[in-house]
């Protein structure tokens, strides 16, 4: 994947080392977030269910 041309407009120096590290860790951090979201959804579902049972 080649950097899109617009990025070169950015006035900050992207610093290669920073961009490379980001590309390496972002995938894993994205996966962690997805897992978290699923667990929030499950917890939310059961807590709603539980509340409904109580009523």
């Amino acid at each position: 994947m080649v950097m899109p041309p617009e990025v070169t407009y950015a006035y900050l120096d992207p610093i290669s080392g920073s961009v490379i590290l980001q590309a390496l860790i972002a995938g894993a951090l994205g996966a962690i977030l997805s897992i978290k979201k699923v667990s929030w959804a499950i917890r939310g579902y059961f807590s709603r269910l539980f509340k409904r049972d109580k009523q």
Binding site: M1, V2, M3, S16, G17, V19, I20, Q22, A23, L24, I25, A26, G27, A28, L29, G30, A31, I32, L33, S34, K36
Partner: peptide, 19 residues
């Protein structure tokens, strides 16, 4: 060599910011 870095997905950026 770093001129062609790997793409960062939407989910990846979201994960980075969330972390």
């Amino acid at each position: 060599k770093a001129a062609k870095p790997r793409a960062v997905s939407d989910r990846g950026i979201e994960g980075l910011v969330s972390n």
